[in-house]
Computed example of a mutant assay.
Amino acid sequence: MGADIDGAIESRSSDGVWRFEVALWTLGPGRDTNAFQCLFGTGRGEVGTDRPFFARRGLPDDVSDPVREGSAFGDCEHSHTYATWAEVAAVDWDAPITDGPAWLWAGEWRSGEDGDLVLHDLAWVTPAINEAADDAFGGDFDSPAEWPPGGEVVLDGVVYRPVVLTARMFVSPDKENWVALWTAMRDLAAEHGDENVRLVAWFG
């Protein structure tokens, strides 16, 4: 299935009717497949989240006519869903989104300013990391998720450890390509109320 996002932001006025506000394509999140998995549980990302936030809820029954028409433009649209600004604002971006260490990722730890190791970045697990784990732990390992408790691998001066993924690692509120969307929703919520602004999205 395709992994391009489409949709719109809607607001609900005092008469209870939802109205189209802005098309999602103008806000530019682009094809961010790992973020799509975290938020909506769809797309060909590499996160493997067990708990996407707003997965496949369908179209709201009271969706505005322009958004309903746009969501049925062709035969390839799928994974329709929605989320109010109140729900987005309540997301704990630092909560685990998987039930254990990531299979395809490792935490990349480097020395901080005080000399202590700090989590610097996520690293894609390469054959070299797996081979270093085999040497360190005396086995045949395919993933950091299989390393013994407390296990870590040092390769080219970098320390790699198993990592439990969080949404902030892929789609934080200040991630550049999502800022315009979240800002638009926040600004509209300041006018209409948090429960009266929502994102309606689908994929194709």
Results as ranks from 00 to 15, higher is better:
102 A>M: 03
99 D>A: 10
69 E>C: 04
137 F>I: 01
129 I>R: 04
51 R>S: 09
149 P>S: 06
113 E>H: 13
136 A>F: 03
181 L>G: 06
19 R>S: 13
99 D>Q: 11
89 A>I: 03
141 F>T: 06
200 V>W: 07
3 A>L: 08
11 S>I: 14
103 W>S: 08
149 P>A: 03
87 E>D: 12
88 V>C: 04
58 G>Y: 09
45 G>M: 01
156 D>E: 15
199 L>T: 08
105 W>L: 04
90 A>Y: 09
116 D>K: 13
20 F>T: 08
116 D>I: 07
168 R>V: 02
6 D>A: 13
155 L>P: 00
120 H>Y: 05
27 L>A: 10
165 L>T: 08
163 V>A: 02
96 P>A: 01
79 S>W: 09
41 G>A: 02
170 F>V: 09
86 A>L: 08
21 E>K: 14
54 F>E: 02
101 P>C: 12
4 D>S: 03
139 G>A: 05
165 L>V: 10
141 F>S: 05
25 W>T: 11
158 V>S: 09
57 R>T: 02
168 R>I: 00
131 E>Y: 05
191 E>K: 13
121 D>P: 00
162 P>C: 04
120 H>F: 06
137 F>N: 02
190 A>H: 12
46 E>L: 15
15 D>S: 12
49 T>F: 14
121 D>K: 00
164 V>A: 02
16 G>L: 04
16 G>R: 07
70 G>A: 15
194 D>Y: 03
54 F>L: 06
59 L>I: 05
87 E>Y: 09
104 L>Q: 09
97 I>Y: 08
